[in-house]
Design a protein around this nucleic acid. Structure first.
Lengths: 258, 258
DNA sequence: ATGTGTGAATACATTCACAGCA
DNA sequence: TGCTGTGAATGTATTCACACAT
């Protein structure tokens, strides 16, 4: 959108593929590093290497944002940082609340990547009265009773759930009722949310299980009982790939504090 | 690099799509819950609802594993639990080491989902000499100096990196050199690994940025300057969707302890 | 020369819709 | 009759390869 570029919608139209959106943060991180080293421009090849993707994909991804590069030269680092930040909505800063201050919640609260990337921990919330008032990562923990007020007073629209699985849905319901429309769920449960609310999950156990699956292959077919064993086949540097889905309701799983 | 691969042996029997593999843990979790409630059978419809996917997808996923259902009836819960566990390689248990025992590492160490799901924390490793010997979640922390020995003595092939970004690559290199072939990376860096080593990332900041992107849209087109704004359109329960990729090397980012 | 931007080709994933088995 | 299993249809993502701007 930026300037008045009204040609083919292909450029800045509202149709950025999810897969591309998921990679923008990666590019942004690599670009930020370059920016800090005062590198003025990068080629798609270089940037792709730094982000761990291949250059064709990167160029295609950028093409959805617009034509921000210069043929024969590459991309202007600062300009791209700005464009991607804007596209991701990071030019404003998002107040976030973290609910469930166990080890995980504390780790999240202390995560340095927040402030620097458009997010601000507006509040830490926990159900344990003993924690109320105690500062974690410099921020005082507040009691769950005040959840609704905290959300409203701070205009919070993004919530992080780091509670035990048993109370996650209930916390989720309260967050949503109070106005939160995006949730990052670390509890190992499928959350049900109304339409219009986004849920993303982070789940240690799932990630490990996926690794185990590939690990098992690499280990050879020793286990092969009556299977039409397939030797190598997969030894590729799989190195990741997620996928989640969703019907009308919530989403999935995750790590969990003590 | 495990065994030889090179071409595209892409057989068929052993060809479970990545997207399906990524969902098996979800199904497994839902099935385990049913199993605990002594539910004997489930239909694809019911199980799909519990796992947060749609039934056609679930049936297609299961079709890659074999024909484990009964037409007109559904799936036998116990049997499916076993088949999926086996497919994921969870019938054996995987010793795992966690490197970097900050808040995050401690949270992971205390995660209950380990033991119950085929994983065992074989060791906790940290570079801080002051931590050595101190138990975290009941497991004594060991010093980084002994990393290689620990990996070898325990036959560890899966490592979790929860260190600050600055040392992640270095830790990764040592893990790989010592024999680890699967890595779950929580540090916000792209790790380079040789072929045959799988890397998966978990990155709080990236997840939040993806949420922010969608959140921005929902917020309306207030920012809309000369854009052919697209009003509602997105209010759907987007609710997730990942995607990562990879070239020849490693992968990406993540949370980070204090 | 060099490296972007992008149509066209290919690969992968989801959804449909229904035949066929219990 | 009810629900699985799966080909065919559709949708999405990645990769190729090259015209073209600088």
């Amino acid at each position: 959108m930026a300037t008045g570029r009204t040609h083919r919608p292909a450029t800045r139209s509202r149709g950025i593929p999810e897969a591309t959106v998921a990679r923008l943060p990666l590019y942004l991180r690599a670009l930020t590093a370059l920016s800090e080293r005062s590198v003025p421009t990068v080629s798609s090849e270089e940037l792709a290497a730094a982000a761990g993707v291949n250059s064709a994909k990167l160029r295609k991804d950028f093409s959805y944002l617009g034509s921000y590069g210069t043929r024969g030269v590459g991309y202007d680092v600062e300009y791209l940082v700005y464009q991607i930040s804007r596209e991701l909505g990071l030019t404003q800063d998002w107040p976030v609340v973290i609910v469930g201050i166990g080890n995980l919640g504390a780790a999240l609260a202390g995560y340095g990547g927040f402030a620097s990337r458009g997010f601000r921990v507006a509040a830490l919330i926990d159900a344990d009265p003993a924690m109320a008032g105690k500062p974690v990562a410099g921020i005082p923990v507040q009691h769950t009773d005040d959840l609704e007020k905290i959300i409203k007073d701070n205009g919070v629209s993004i919530g992080v759930i780091a509670t035990p699985a048993g109370v996650a849905q209930q916390v989720c319901d309260r967050l949503v009722a109070a106005g939160v429309t995006s949730i990052l769920n670390f509890a190992p449960t499928v959350l049900s949310v109304p339409d219009g609310v986004d849920v993303r999950k982070v789940d240690l156990s799932i990630e490990l299980q996926i690794l185990a699956f590939h690990e098992q292959r690499k280990a050879g077919e020793e286990t092969a009982a009556g299977d039409g064993a397939l030797p190598a086949a997969t030894a590729r540097g799989v190195a990741a790939g997620d996928s989640a889905d969703q019907g009308p309701d919530g989403d999935v799983p995750a790590v969990m504090p003590a």
